[in-house]
């Protein structure tokens, strides 16, 4: 296969877990809560999906378990920051380390255990297309489900009443209170939904992409997802593009190495992060003006209202 197809195809498959988590974080931040524990939700999602997959032999039950685990961890974050007014940064990071510890402990019996994961399913007709076929349509079903998640989240966020309430919680929480809505409930719901999506991202990583469980296997993808949301200025569509772009940046290293390009591997490892810094530099203040208003209060270290 050509280098371009190899990198693009690798970008889509490797970027899918980041996309799930990034879209989830978008939902959460749109409602005014930053969840640095996204990495943790991915981890418990990965282990939950893997363990359930091993025990039941059904990868879809695995996804359900992973989504539940990711959502549960995010729910704790929601409770701490929304109900108890805890620092969003401290809570998110603490939950990440909790998740690291718990998954190492409970994941040990699953290391090296074979799982019935998702197999490649080539979409009839579409997979025969030149370039687009191998890049988009020769993957696993959980990846295809990802194609539906972004439009779905976009519709809910921007075309439904629930989405309007969620976004209002992130922009002008006071006005919700005036109209008798519970900002707390809306925010906790959004954070939990974000965790569910991050858990599905973890599930993709463990049971569709790498087909393995190993402690700390998310290896920073959750943090890339959080950075990506700012990078994408809180738009689910741009999160989708950005996640695949990151996936391509990660796939570029192995693809060039396999073709014996004379390039330093450690330099290649830095590409995704240089890319982030470059985009942040270019967007500059625009990221701030596009930010949900209630989120700025978090950056200013003021407690979010509500």
């Amino acid at each position: 296969m050509s280098l371009v197809v190899d990198v693009l195809s690798g970008g889509v498959s490797g970027g899918t877990s980041i996309m799930y988590a990034g879209v989830g974080e978008t939902v959460s931040e749109r409602a005014g809560v930053i969840n640095l524990g996204t990495e943790g939700s991915m981890l418990v999602g990965a282990l939950g999906a893997y363990a359930a997959g091993v025990e039941t032999g059904n990868p879809w039950i695995g996804v359900l378990a992973g989504a539940t685990a990711g959502g549960a961890l995010a729910l704790v974050h929601g409770y701490l920051v929304v109900r108890r007014g805890a620092s969003q940064f401290a809570s998110g990071l603490s939950l990440l380390f909790l998740a690291l510890g718990l998954t190492s402990l409970f994941g040990a019996p699953y290391v090296g255990q074979p799982v019935v994961g998702f197999d490649t399913w080539e979409v009839p007709l579409l997979s025969d297309l030149p370039v687009l076929g191998p890049v988009l349509f020769q993957h696993d079903p959980l990846l295809y489900l990802g194609y539906l998640v972004v439009p779905l989240v976009w519709v809910v966020l921007f075309k439904t009443r629930v989405g309007l309430l969620g976004r209002t919680a992130g922009e002008r929480a006071d006005s919700l209170t005036v109209h008798g809505y519970s900002v707390h409930a809306i925010r906790i719901g959004a954070v939990t939904a974000g965790g569910v999506l991050a858990g599905m991202g973890g599930a993709h990583l463990a049971t569709a992409y790498a087909n393995a469980w190993f402690e700390n296997m998310v290896a920073g993808r959750g943090f890339i997802a959080v950075a990506l949301v700012i990078f994408a200025t809180w738009s689910p569509w741009r999160v989708l593009g950005g996640a695949y772009l990151f996936g391509c940046a990660i796939a570029l290293g192995p693809a060039l190495q396999a073709r014996a390009f004379e390039i330093n591997q450690f330099l290649l490892d830095a590409v995704p992060f240089v890319l982030t810094l470059a985009v942040l530099t270019i967007l500059g203040k625009r990221t701030l003006s596009a930010s949900p208003a209630e989120l700025k209060r978090v950056f200013e270290n003021a407690p979010p209202s509500g």
Binding site: D6, S9, G10, S13, G14, S17, L205, A206, Y209, A210, N211, A212, F214, M217, V218, A219, R221, I250, A251, G253, P254, A255, Q257, A258
Partner: peptide, 11 residues
């Protein structure tokens, strides 16, 4: 890093 291993194997 199973994710990177997968990318390497695919390439």
């Amino acid at each position: 890093d199973p994710g990177k291993q997968q990318a390497a194997a695919e390439s």
